[in-house]
């Protein structure tokens, strides 16, 4: 076994243990919230997932810019893989949100800036993947990089447009610090780190897969070319 492989296995094991610890902390360590009850625990999944989704989309945005500047397919690969993982976490946010909102706000959904922006984000990145699906190979990387940039730049505009309406989303993390108590804060910190590790793990795995896919495609193309002669 090469040292690189050993590091990889250790990293994977560490991510796994951290995820288990995060689950333990959510259900056994963190206290039950007084007014909201058990449903508040979804917060420990919801908030880190939202953070990871935004992080992933930001990586797509940055990688898209780098691709247009450098024209290196490596950046296109990172942008694609990060967008896919971002959609998964964005979906988790959009599913856990209403589950929490129904007992607390008494509605599944409201047109609050954060909720709406997240929903629009989801639509934008699903469109990103669909665009990749219908564009020919020679234009795929360019088009999706342009869309990756436009999609992300659009987010603050959408947010401000919707913020001119009323907002009811609880503000947990303000400029003055986090609005929750000790054990809850520890649990949140733990789930945050676990989700970050999970994200890195997923991104690396997905990138390895995509690299293999592209290498296989190149080999097949070379093989077909030879058979024509």
């Amino acid at each position: 076994m090469t040292p690189k492989r050993i590091t990889k296995i250790i990293f994977e094991l560490f991510t796994f243990v951290m995820m288990l610890l995060a689950l333990y902390a959510i259900f056994f360590y963190a206290p039950v919230e007084k007014t909201m009850g058990l449903v508040q625990k979804i917060f420990y999944i919801h908030v880190p997932a939202a953070f990871i989704a935004f992080l992933a989309f930001f990586i797509t945005f940055a990688a898209s810019i780098l691709y247009l500047v450098k024209k290196d397919n490596q950046w296109d690969l990172i942008a694609l893989c990060s967008a896919e993982i971002g959609i998964i976490f964005c979906t988790i946010v959009l599913v856990t949100g209403p589950i929490w909102a129904k007992p607390v706000w008494n509605v599944w959904w409201t047109w609050d800036p954060r909720l709406t922006t997240t929903l629009i984000l989801w639509f934008i990145y699903v469109a990103y993947l669909m665009l990749r699906g219908v564009v020919g190979e020679n234009k795929k990387a360019n088009f999706s990089a342009v869309f990756g940039i436009i999609g992300f730049v659009n987010v603050p505009l959408t947010f401000f447009a919707i913020r001119l309406w009323r907002t009811i989303h609880p503000v947990m993390i303000t400029s003055r610090g986090i609005n929750i108590s000790g054990p809850m804060k520890d649990t949140l910190a733990l789930t945050f780190s676990a989700f970050c590790l999970l994200f890195i793990f997923l991104l690396l795995t997905r990138m390895r897969l995509e690299k293999m896919k592209r290498a296989t495609e190149t080999v097949i193309a070379m093989f077909e070319e030879r058979h024509h002669f």
Partner: peptide, 27 residues
């Protein structure tokens, strides 16, 4: 310009335009 180079022109155009033009529509 993008969608005209793809196989599914009409569908992909609306999927790309609508989410991005949300701020314009609301405002």
């Amino acid at each position: 310009a993008m969608s005209s180079a793809t196989k599914a022109r009409d569908v992909i155009l609306s999927i790309l335009v609508f989410p991005i033009s949300v701020p314009v529509i609301i405002a």
